[in-house]
Amino acid sequence: MKMWPPIASTIFALLVWQLIVTSTGVQPFLLPGPSVVAEAWWQHRVLIAENAVITLQEIVLGMIIGTALGIVTALQLATSKTMRTLVQPILVFTQSLPVFALAPILTLWLGFGLWSKVAMAVLIIYFPVTSAFFDGLIRTPPGYLDLAKTMQAKPMRILWQIRVPAALPSLGAGVRLAAVYATIGAVIGEWVGASKGLGALMIMSNGRAKTDLMFAALLTLGVMSVVFYLLVAKLTRVLGDRET
């Protein structure tokens, strides 16, 4: 990937931001300029880093657990008609609920610590992973299945040798989507009730009119989630190319 387009667009965005602040003379507690935010970031770098580590833990744990659950569910759905009949409607129904609305109850159940945020991230990414992988598993090119049938293949071997590898690109797409959602889930969990994490830091600094710190935390979160997404995207492509 070329490095200069993102750098150029970042500089451009910062310029526009500074221009708005200077030309409107808006109060710093409403919208601080980039230089003020950079100063706040440097001043609070240790605080921001500590909270970023917490949020990152929530995201990574949420990703691992959510992806694992999604993969297992998709395999179950793809191989068992009973599972499809029983579970698929529930999945669709739960997906039509706003998962964010569950955040307070998760905090009540799991406390203010790490796990209520992990659970939030898991809930948010579980469906896209399950749905993408399941879709891939039931859309095996019919020609492959014909060929396997003429070879008197065993169903479980068709699953592992053909259906799963053929569905890996779909799973990869689901996991990449989940990498974006996981951040959202963790931060929403933190907004609802937490003492640590970038989301908690943002709520706290907002409440104390420390808008510069709020923006510093927000930008850190943004950079972190982009880097996380790029890493996950790289990982899914490397695994997808591997010979099975």
Partner: peptide
Amino acid sequence: TLGARLRG
């Protein structure tokens, strides 16, 4: 060798 692998 797909056939053999599919039959185990």
